[in-house]
Design a protein around this nucleic acid. Structure first.
Lengths: 204, 204
DNA sequence: TCCGTAACCGTCCGGCCGTTCGGTTGACTA
DNA sequence: TAGTCAACCGAACGGCCGGACGGTTACGGA
Protein backbone atom coordinates (compact mmCIF):
# COMPACT_ATOMS: atom_id res chain seq x y z
CA UNK A 1 0.00 0.00 0.00
CA UNK A 2 1.87 2.98 1.27
CA UNK A 3 4.86 3.18 -1.04
CA UNK A 4 7.22 4.76 1.45
CA UNK A 5 10.12 5.06 -0.86
CA UNK A 6 10.16 8.38 -2.53
CA UNK A 7 8.77 11.80 -1.83
CA UNK A 8 6.72 10.87 1.17
CA UNK A 9 9.72 9.39 2.86
CA UNK A 10 11.92 12.32 1.95
CA UNK A 11 9.39 14.66 3.44
CA UNK A 12 9.40 12.66 6.64
CA UNK A 13 13.16 12.62 6.81
CA UNK A 14 13.66 16.31 6.06
CA UNK A 15 10.88 17.21 8.46
CA UNK A 16 12.48 15.22 11.26
CA UNK A 17 15.79 16.96 10.62
CA UNK A 18 14.24 20.43 10.54
CA UNK A 19 11.95 19.82 13.52
CA UNK A 20 14.96 18.67 15.45
CA UNK A 21 17.23 21.56 14.64
CA UNK A 22 14.71 24.42 14.61
CA UNK A 23 11.92 22.93 16.67
CA UNK A 24 8.44 22.01 15.49
CA UNK A 25 7.08 25.51 15.98
CA UNK A 26 10.22 27.04 14.56
CA UNK A 27 9.86 25.21 11.26
CA UNK A 28 7.42 26.42 8.64
CA UNK A 29 5.84 24.27 5.98
CA UNK A 30 7.41 26.57 3.40
CA UNK A 31 10.90 25.88 4.73
CA UNK A 32 10.21 22.19 4.78
CA UNK A 33 8.86 22.24 1.23
CA UNK A 34 11.90 24.04 -0.06
CA UNK A 35 14.21 21.64 1.79
CA UNK A 36 12.47 18.70 0.16
CA UNK A 37 12.36 20.43 -3.19
CA UNK A 38 8.60 20.55 -3.67
CA UNK A 39 5.95 23.15 -3.10
CA UNK A 40 4.06 23.73 0.09
CA UNK A 41 0.93 22.35 -1.54
CA UNK A 42 2.57 19.04 -2.33
CA UNK A 43 3.26 18.49 1.32
CA UNK A 44 -0.48 18.44 1.87
CA UNK A 45 -0.90 15.81 -0.78
CA UNK A 46 1.13 13.42 1.38
CA UNK A 47 0.20 14.53 4.86
CA UNK A 48 -3.08 15.99 6.04
CA UNK A 49 -1.44 18.42 8.44
CA UNK A 50 1.78 19.47 10.07
CA UNK A 51 0.64 17.77 13.27
CA UNK A 52 -0.01 14.50 11.47
CA UNK A 53 3.44 14.68 9.95
CA UNK A 54 5.12 15.06 13.31
CA UNK A 55 2.95 12.34 14.76
CA UNK A 56 3.91 9.90 12.02
CA UNK A 57 7.60 10.64 12.40
CA UNK A 58 7.39 9.83 16.07
CA UNK A 59 5.20 6.79 15.84
CA UNK A 60 7.27 5.23 13.11
CA UNK A 61 10.42 5.37 15.18
CA UNK A 62 8.84 4.31 18.42
CA UNK A 63 7.25 1.30 16.79
CA UNK A 64 10.60 0.35 15.36
CA UNK A 65 12.66 0.65 18.53
CA UNK A 66 10.18 -0.64 21.08
CA UNK A 67 10.30 -4.27 19.90
CA UNK A 68 14.09 -4.18 19.91
CA UNK A 69 14.19 -3.12 23.54
CA UNK A 70 11.47 -5.57 24.44
CA UNK A 71 13.55 -8.39 22.99
CA UNK A 72 16.48 -7.37 25.16
CA UNK A 73 14.31 -6.98 28.23
CA UNK A 74 12.98 -10.52 27.84
CA UNK A 75 16.32 -12.19 27.36
CA UNK A 76 17.45 -14.85 29.75
CA UNK A 77 20.27 -12.86 31.31
CA UNK A 78 21.13 -11.27 34.65
CA UNK A 79 19.22 -8.03 35.22
CA UNK A 80 22.32 -5.87 35.21
CA UNK A 81 23.30 -7.33 31.87
CA UNK A 82 19.84 -6.70 30.47
CA UNK A 83 19.88 -3.13 31.76
CA UNK A 84 23.25 -2.50 30.20
CA UNK A 85 22.21 -3.91 26.86
CA UNK A 86 18.96 -1.96 26.85
CA UNK A 87 20.86 1.24 27.52
CA UNK A 88 23.35 0.46 24.77
CA UNK A 89 20.56 -0.32 22.36
CA UNK A 90 18.59 2.80 23.19
CA UNK A 91 21.63 5.03 22.96
CA UNK A 92 22.86 3.58 19.69
CA UNK A 93 19.42 3.96 18.16
CA UNK A 94 19.10 7.48 19.55
CA UNK A 95 22.29 8.36 17.72
CA UNK A 96 21.60 6.46 14.51
CA UNK A 97 18.10 7.85 14.22
CA UNK A 98 18.82 11.16 15.89
CA UNK A 99 16.33 13.33 14.09
CA UNK A 100 13.32 11.16 14.70
CA UNK A 101 14.36 10.37 18.26
CA UNK A 102 14.78 14.08 18.94
CA UNK A 103 11.27 14.62 17.64
CA UNK A 104 10.04 11.91 19.97
CA UNK A 105 11.82 13.29 23.00
CA UNK A 106 11.67 17.03 22.46
CA UNK A 107 8.90 17.85 20.03
CA UNK A 108 6.25 15.32 20.98
CA UNK A 109 4.92 17.71 23.56
CA UNK A 110 3.62 19.99 20.82
CA UNK A 111 1.23 17.37 19.53
CA UNK A 112 -2.44 18.30 19.70
CA UNK A 113 -4.69 16.27 22.02
CA UNK A 114 -5.80 13.81 19.31
CA UNK A 115 -2.26 12.73 18.60
CA UNK A 116 -1.05 13.26 22.14
CA UNK A 117 -3.04 10.35 23.50
CA UNK A 118 -1.31 7.79 21.31
CA UNK A 119 2.02 9.48 21.84
CA UNK A 120 1.84 9.28 25.62
CA UNK A 121 0.65 5.69 25.48
CA UNK A 122 3.60 4.72 23.29
CA UNK A 123 6.01 6.53 25.57
CA UNK A 124 4.64 4.84 28.65
CA UNK A 125 4.88 1.44 27.03
CA UNK A 126 8.50 2.12 26.19
CA UNK A 127 9.42 3.34 29.65
CA UNK A 128 7.68 0.36 31.20
CA UNK A 129 10.21 -1.91 29.52
CA UNK A 130 13.01 -0.22 31.40
CA UNK A 131 10.98 0.06 34.55
CA UNK A 132 10.34 -3.65 34.72
CA UNK A 133 14.02 -4.42 34.42
CA UNK A 134 14.72 -2.00 37.21
CA UNK A 135 12.08 -3.29 39.56
CA UNK A 136 13.10 -6.85 38.98
CA UNK A 137 16.66 -5.89 39.83
CA UNK A 138 15.60 -4.15 43.01
CA UNK A 139 13.42 -7.07 44.07
CA UNK A 140 16.16 -9.59 43.50
CA UNK A 141 18.63 -7.48 45.43
CA UNK A 142 20.93 -6.96 42.48
CA UNK A 143 20.02 -3.26 42.35
CA UNK A 144 20.01 -0.69 45.12
CA UNK A 145 16.76 0.13 46.87
CA UNK A 146 15.49 3.20 45.05
CA UNK A 147 12.53 4.69 43.27
CA UNK A 148 12.34 2.75 40.02
CA UNK A 149 10.35 5.42 38.23
CA UNK A 150 12.91 8.09 38.96
CA UNK A 151 15.77 5.80 38.08
CA UNK A 152 14.25 5.15 34.67
CA UNK A 153 13.67 8.86 34.08
CA UNK A 154 17.26 9.48 35.10
CA UNK A 155 18.68 6.89 32.74
CA UNK A 156 16.54 7.86 29.79
CA UNK A 157 17.21 11.52 30.49
CA UNK A 158 20.90 10.76 30.32
CA UNK A 159 20.61 8.72 27.12
CA UNK A 160 18.28 11.11 25.37
CA UNK A 161 20.59 14.03 25.99
CA UNK A 162 22.79 12.74 23.17
CA UNK A 163 20.44 14.19 20.61
CA UNK A 164 21.42 17.61 21.91
CA UNK A 165 25.19 17.33 21.86
CA UNK A 166 26.28 14.37 19.74
CA UNK A 167 28.24 15.30 16.63
CA UNK A 168 29.43 12.71 14.11
CA UNK A 169 32.82 14.40 13.98
CA UNK A 170 33.25 14.17 17.74
CA UNK A 171 36.05 12.19 19.33
CA UNK A 172 33.86 9.29 20.44
CA UNK A 173 31.94 6.79 18.37
CA UNK A 174 28.30 5.98 19.06
CA UNK A 175 29.38 2.61 20.43
CA UNK A 176 31.81 4.19 22.84
CA UNK A 177 29.22 6.64 24.08
CA UNK A 178 26.61 3.92 24.44
CA UNK A 179 28.98 1.68 26.33
CA UNK A 180 30.02 4.47 28.68
CA UNK A 181 26.35 5.21 29.36
CA UNK A 182 25.71 1.55 30.00
CA UNK A 183 28.57 1.24 32.46
CA UNK A 184 27.40 4.37 34.14
CA UNK A 185 23.81 3.19 34.40
CA UNK A 186 24.68 -0.29 35.62
CA UNK A 187 27.21 0.90 38.19
CA UNK A 188 24.68 3.47 39.33
CA UNK A 189 21.99 0.86 39.70
CA UNK A 190 23.64 -2.17 41.23
CA UNK A 191 23.94 -2.74 44.95
CA UNK A 192 27.63 -2.82 45.69
CA UNK A 193 29.16 -4.32 48.81
CA UNK A 194 31.73 -1.58 48.58
CA UNK A 195 31.15 1.95 49.92
CA UNK A 196 27.92 3.58 48.96
CA UNK A 197 26.53 7.13 48.92
CA UNK A 198 28.82 9.86 50.09
CA UNK A 199 32.19 8.78 51.33
CA UNK A 200 35.91 9.16 50.83
CA UNK A 201 38.72 7.98 48.61
CA UNK A 202 38.93 4.25 48.27
CA UNK A 203 41.78 2.72 50.29
CA UNK A 204 41.60 -0.94 49.23
CA UNK B 1 17.98 51.87 37.28
CA UNK B 2 16.31 48.55 36.82
CA UNK B 3 13.64 48.35 39.51
CA UNK B 4 13.14 44.62 39.38
CA UNK B 5 10.28 44.41 41.73
CA UNK B 6 6.99 44.68 40.01
CA UNK B 7 5.74 44.33 36.47
CA UNK B 8 9.07 43.71 34.88
CA UNK B 9 9.69 40.80 37.18
CA UNK B 10 6.20 39.42 36.70
CA UNK B 11 6.74 39.51 32.95
CA UNK B 12 9.95 37.58 33.34
CA UNK B 13 8.33 35.02 35.56
CA UNK B 14 5.26 34.48 33.43
CA UNK B 15 7.38 34.37 30.30
CA UNK B 16 9.60 31.69 31.78
CA UNK B 17 6.55 29.63 32.69
CA UNK B 18 4.97 30.00 29.27
CA UNK B 19 8.20 29.45 27.35
CA UNK B 20 8.71 26.30 29.33
CA UNK B 21 5.29 24.81 28.85
CA UNK B 22 4.57 25.91 25.27
CA UNK B 23 8.06 26.55 23.99
CA UNK B 24 9.58 29.87 22.98
CA UNK B 25 8.23 29.68 19.45
CA UNK B 26 4.91 28.36 20.69
CA UNK B 27 4.29 31.37 22.92
CA UNK B 28 3.08 34.66 21.47
CA UNK B 29 3.64 38.04 23.01
CA UNK B 30 -0.13 38.45 23.10
CA UNK B 31 -0.54 35.33 25.22
CA UNK B 32 2.24 36.48 27.50
CA UNK B 33 0.70 39.92 27.87
CA UNK B 34 -2.67 38.51 28.80
CA UNK B 35 -1.07 36.12 31.29
CA UNK B 36 0.68 39.03 32.96
CA UNK B 37 -2.41 41.19 32.77
CA UNK B 38 -1.04 43.98 30.59
CA UNK B 39 -1.15 44.78 26.90
CA UNK B 40 1.31 43.62 24.34
CA UNK B 41 2.64 47.15 24.04
CA UNK B 42 3.56 47.28 27.69
CA UNK B 43 5.78 44.27 27.22
CA UNK B 44 7.85 46.33 24.81
CA UNK B 45 8.17 49.08 27.32
CA UNK B 46 10.08 46.71 29.58
CA UNK B 47 11.89 44.53 27.06
CA UNK B 48 13.17 45.53 23.63
CA UNK B 49 12.25 42.21 22.04
CA UNK B 50 11.05 38.68 22.66
CA UNK B 51 14.61 37.45 22.16
CA UNK B 52 15.97 39.85 24.74
CA UNK B 53 13.35 38.66 27.18
CA UNK B 54 14.34 35.03 26.79
CA UNK B 55 17.98 35.97 27.00
CA UNK B 56 17.50 37.83 30.25
CA UNK B 57 15.54 34.99 31.81
CA UNK B 58 18.35 32.60 31.05
CA UNK B 59 21.23 34.82 32.03
CA UNK B 60 19.65 35.78 35.31
CA UNK B 61 19.32 32.18 36.40
CA UNK B 62 22.69 31.08 35.15
CA UNK B 63 24.43 33.92 36.91
CA UNK B 64 22.62 32.97 40.09
CA UNK B 65 23.37 29.25 40.06
CA UNK B 66 26.90 29.26 38.67
CA UNK B 67 28.51 30.79 41.77
CA UNK B 68 26.69 28.30 43.97
CA UNK B 69 28.11 25.36 42.06
CA UNK B 70 31.53 26.99 41.93
CA UNK B 71 31.53 27.27 45.70
CA UNK B 72 30.81 23.56 46.01
CA UNK B 73 33.41 22.68 43.39
CA UNK B 74 36.09 24.54 45.28
CA UNK B 75 35.35 23.06 48.69
CA UNK B 76 38.01 21.12 50.48
CA UNK B 77 36.33 17.76 50.22
CA UNK B 78 36.91 14.42 48.47
CA UNK B 79 36.01 14.58 44.77
CA UNK B 80 33.15 12.13 45.07
CA UNK B 81 31.64 14.23 47.83
CA UNK B 82 31.99 17.37 45.75
CA UNK B 83 30.42 15.66 42.76
CA UNK B 84 27.51 14.47 44.86
CA UNK B 85 26.93 17.88 46.35
CA UNK B 86 27.15 19.60 42.98
CA UNK B 87 24.57 17.21 41.57
CA UNK B 88 22.27 17.76 44.54
CA UNK B 89 22.63 21.50 44.21
CA UNK B 90 22.02 21.52 40.50
CA UNK B 91 19.00 19.26 40.79
CA UNK B 92 17.43 21.15 43.65
CA UNK B 93 17.85 24.43 41.83
CA UNK B 94 16.54 22.89 38.62
CA UNK B 95 13.39 21.98 40.48
CA UNK B 96 13.03 25.15 42.51
CA UNK B 97 13.58 27.37 39.50
CA UNK B 98 12.07 24.99 36.98
CA UNK B 99 10.75 27.48 34.50
CA UNK B 100 13.94 29.46 34.06
CA UNK B 101 16.09 26.34 34.08
CA UNK B 102 13.89 24.80 31.42
CA UNK B 103 14.39 27.94 29.35
CA UNK B 104 18.12 27.59 29.82
CA UNK B 105 18.19 23.94 28.87
CA UNK B 106 15.50 23.67 26.23
CA UNK B 107 14.79 27.09 24.78
CA UNK B 108 18.23 28.66 24.73
CA UNK B 109 18.86 27.16 21.32
CA UNK B 110 16.32 29.53 19.81
CA UNK B 111 18.37 32.58 20.71
CA UNK B 112 19.57 34.67 17.80
CA UNK B 113 23.33 34.85 17.16
CA UNK B 114 23.83 38.05 19.18
CA UNK B 115 22.45 36.47 22.33
CA UNK B 116 23.66 32.99 21.49
CA UNK B 117 27.28 33.88 21.95
CA UNK B 118 26.85 34.86 25.57
CA UNK B 119 24.54 31.97 26.16
CA UNK B 120 27.01 29.37 24.94
CA UNK B 121 29.82 30.98 26.89
CA UNK B 122 27.79 30.84 30.08
CA UNK B 123 26.84 27.26 29.46
CA UNK B 124 30.43 26.24 28.84
CA UNK B 125 31.56 27.96 32.01
CA UNK B 126 28.93 26.08 33.95
CA UNK B 127 29.78 22.70 32.46
CA UNK B 128 33.47 23.31 33.08
CA UNK B 129 32.77 23.34 36.80
CA UNK B 130 31.49 19.80 36.64
CA UNK B 131 34.12 18.78 34.18
CA UNK B 132 36.95 19.83 36.44
CA UNK B 133 35.56 17.81 39.31
CA UNK B 134 35.34 14.82 37.04
CA UNK B 135 38.79 15.08 35.61
CA UNK B 136 40.31 15.57 39.00
CA UNK B 137 38.56 12.43 40.17
CA UNK B 138 39.79 10.44 37.20
CA UNK B 139 43.34 11.69 37.62
CA UNK B 140 43.42 10.83 41.30
CA UNK B 141 42.05 7.39 40.58
CA UNK B 142 38.89 7.92 42.58
CA UNK B 143 36.78 7.86 39.42
CA UNK B 144 36.78 5.31 36.62
CA UNK B 145 38.79 5.99 33.52
CA UNK B 146 36.30 7.51 31.11
CA UNK B 147 35.61 10.44 28.86
CA UNK B 148 35.03 13.33 31.23
CA UNK B 149 33.14 15.37 28.70
CA UNK B 150 30.64 12.63 28.05
CA UNK B 151 30.28 11.88 31.73
CA UNK B 152 29.37 15.50 32.40
CA UNK B 153 26.87 15.55 29.55
CA UNK B 154 25.40 12.33 30.91
CA UNK B 155 25.03 13.65 34.43
CA UNK B 156 23.62 17.01 33.42
CA UNK B 157 21.33 15.31 30.93
CA UNK B 158 20.01 13.19 33.74
CA UNK B 159 19.57 16.13 36.11
CA UNK B 160 18.03 18.43 33.54
CA UNK B 161 15.43 15.88 32.59
CA UNK B 162 13.56 16.76 35.79
CA UNK B 163 12.17 19.87 34.15
CA UNK B 164 10.26 17.56 31.82
CA UNK B 165 8.66 15.22 34.30
CA UNK B 166 8.82 16.66 37.82
CA UNK B 167 5.44 17.44 39.32
CA UNK B 168 5.08 19.05 42.76
CA UNK B 169 2.32 16.58 43.61
CA UNK B 170 4.51 13.60 42.80
CA UNK B 171 5.45 11.02 45.39
CA UNK B 172 9.02 12.24 45.83
CA UNK B 173 10.31 15.52 47.18
CA UNK B 174 12.94 17.55 45.35
CA UNK B 175 15.46 16.56 48.02
CA UNK B 176 14.75 12.88 47.53
CA UNK B 177 15.09 13.15 43.78
CA UNK B 178 18.29 15.16 44.08
CA UNK B 179 19.80 12.71 46.50
CA UNK B 180 18.91 9.73 44.33
CA UNK B 181 20.52 11.48 41.36
CA UNK B 182 23.61 12.20 43.42
CA UNK B 183 23.97 8.60 44.57
CA UNK B 184 23.48 7.48 41.03
CA UNK B 185 26.07 9.87 39.67
CA UNK B 186 28.66 9.12 42.32
CA UNK B 187 28.26 5.35 42.10
CA UNK B 188 28.43 5.64 38.36
CA UNK B 189 31.62 7.64 38.53
CA UNK B 190 33.75 6.05 41.18
CA UNK B 191 36.21 3.30 40.48
CA UNK B 192 35.17 0.05 42.05
CA UNK B 193 36.69 -3.37 41.99
CA UNK B 194 33.50 -4.82 40.58
CA UNK B 195 34.04 -6.09 37.04
CA UNK B 196 32.45 -4.15 34.23
CA UNK B 197 29.15 -5.75 33.32
CA UNK B 198 28.66 -5.19 29.61
CA UNK B 199 29.76 -6.66 26.33
CA UNK B 200 32.47 -4.59 24.73
CA UNK B 201 34.92 -1.74 24.99
CA UNK B 202 36.95 -0.48 27.84
CA UNK B 203 39.29 2.46 27.55
CA UNK B 204 43.05 1.98 27.38
C1' DT C 1 2.34 75.47 38.35
C1' DC C 2 5.05 73.44 35.15
C1' DC C 3 8.00 69.88 33.40
C1' DG C 4 10.14 65.32 33.03
C1' DT C 5 9.65 60.73 33.21
C1' DA C 6 8.11 55.89 33.98
C1' DA C 7 4.35 52.97 33.16
C1' DC C 8 1.06 51.69 30.35
C1' DC C 9 -2.44 51.29 26.46
C1' DG C 10 -4.98 51.42 21.56
C1' DT C 11 -4.21 50.95 17.10
C1' DC C 12 -2.07 49.72 13.26
C1' DC C 13 1.20 47.20 10.02
C1' DG C 14 3.60 44.20 6.80
C1' DG C 15 4.59 39.70 6.57
C1' DC C 16 4.41 35.06 7.34
C1' DC C 17 1.62 31.22 9.12
C1' DG C 18 -0.92 26.63 8.12
C1' DT C 19 -4.17 25.35 5.09
C1' DT C 20 -7.35 25.12 0.95
C1' DC C 21 -8.66 24.79 -3.74
C1' DG C 22 -8.71 24.37 -8.49
C1' DG C 23 -6.01 23.10 -11.76
C1' DT C 24 -2.28 20.23 -14.82
C1' DT C 25 0.66 16.56 -15.88
C1' DG C 26 1.92 11.86 -17.06
C1' DA C 27 1.80 6.99 -16.38
C1' DC C 28 -1.22 3.09 -16.38
C1' DT C 29 -5.55 0.57 -17.76
C1' DA C 30 -9.36 -1.12 -20.51
C1' DT D 1 -9.22 6.62 -27.19
C1' DA D 2 -10.96 7.71 -23.22
C1' DG D 3 -10.85 7.30 -18.28
C1' DT D 4 -8.61 7.00 -13.79
C1' DC D 5 -5.58 8.33 -10.46
C1' DA D 6 -1.51 9.75 -7.85
C1' DA D 7 1.61 13.43 -7.83
C1' DC D 8 2.34 17.87 -7.96
C1' DC D 9 1.85 23.06 -8.47
C1' DG D 10 0.22 28.32 -8.29
C1' DA D 11 -2.38 31.32 -6.11
C1' DA D 12 -4.93 32.68 -2.65
C1' DC D 13 -7.21 32.60 2.16
C1' DG D 14 -8.00 34.54 6.91
C1' DG D 15 -5.59 34.99 10.86
C1' DC D 16 -2.08 35.73 13.84
C1' DC D 17 2.70 37.10 14.42
C1' DG D 18 6.39 40.40 16.44
C1' DG D 19 6.87 44.90 16.58
C1' DA D 20 6.17 50.28 15.96
C1' DC D 21 4.18 54.52 17.27
C1' DG D 22 1.82 58.02 19.38
C1' DG D 23 -0.88 58.92 22.93
C1' DT D 24 -2.53 59.20 28.19
C1' DT D 25 -2.11 58.85 33.07
C1' DA D 26 0.19 59.28 37.60
C1' DC D 27 3.67 61.19 40.14
C1' DG D 28 7.56 63.74 41.94
C1' DG D 29 10.71 67.53 42.09
C1' DA D 30 11.55 72.61 41.46
Amino acid sequence: MAETRTTRERIRREAAALFRERGFNGTSMAELASAVGVTKSSLYHHFPSKQALLSEIIELTVSRVTPLVRAVAEMDLPVSERLGRAVVLHTVEAIRDQDALACFVEEGRYLAPDFMETHLANRDTYEQLFRRIFEEGIESGDFMEQDGGIAVKAILGMCNSVVRWYRPDGSRSPDEIASQFAHFAVRGAIASRAPAPSERRSPT
